[in-house]
């Protein structure tokens, strides 16, 4: 399968070999991953709350989405890069880890739901009913919590 070939190539690459040998890389990259999690999680929670009419209730949801977009993207890129480096310390271990597989699937779904939420927030300015916006918000929140739980489980499996 293409994914297995990719993970195997990563394990044999110069970067993969260097990551595997280094003692403190994992600890440092893990801390960066955790810091970005706090930031991205905060952004998601504030955005979802705004879409559900909590917290920033008097502001248009689109203002929250647009205002936090740079922070969301910064947090996401940091998480993806640090996450890829963590995988590099032992790619095949992650490839065969069920929690890691579930996390990657949930991540794709969470990103899609967040994109949908941002789209609905843009529409909310013109239209009255907010049902789609609220569903998008609730689904995003559940999926992002799933991503976090999947990540926590990787080490326990």
């Amino acid at each position: 399968m293409i994914f297995e070939a990719l993970f195997r190539a990563y394990a044999h690459s110069t970067l993969g070999q260097a990551l595997r040998r280094s003692t403190w890389t994992f600890a440092i990259v893990e801390v960066v991953h955790l810091l970005a999690l706090a930031v991205l999680g905060g952004v998601v929670l504030v955005t979802v709350a705004a879409a559900l009419g909590l917290g920033r209730a008097r502001r248009p949801v689109a203002a929250t989405v647009l205002g936090l977009r740079p922070v969301f993207l910064g947090g996401l890129v940091t998480l993806l890069v640090s996450g890829a480096l963590l995988v590099g310390t032992n790619p095949m271990k992650y490839y065969f880890n069920d929690a890691f597989r579930a996390k990657m699937l949930l991540l794709v779904l969470a990103l899609a739901a967040t994109f949908w939420l941002a789209q609905q927030a843009g529409h909310a300015r013109e239209r009255g009913p907010l049902v789609a916006l609220r569903i998008a918000a609730a689904v995003s929140l559940i999926l992002w919590v799933g991503v976090a739980l999947g990540g926590r489980l990787i080490g326990l499996l």
């Binding site: 955790l34 706090a38 991205l40 905060g42 929670l45 740079p70 922070v71």
Partner: peptide, 24 residues
């Protein structure tokens, strides 16, 4: 403890970023 981290420090970070003039 890790999920609460996002709620507490994530929101603190957003307020700090506003004080720095980087968001909102």
């Amino acid at each position: 403890h890790v999920l609460g981290l996002a709620l507490m420090t994530g929101t603190i970070a957003i307020v700090d970023l506003r004080l720095l003039g980087w968001v909102f």
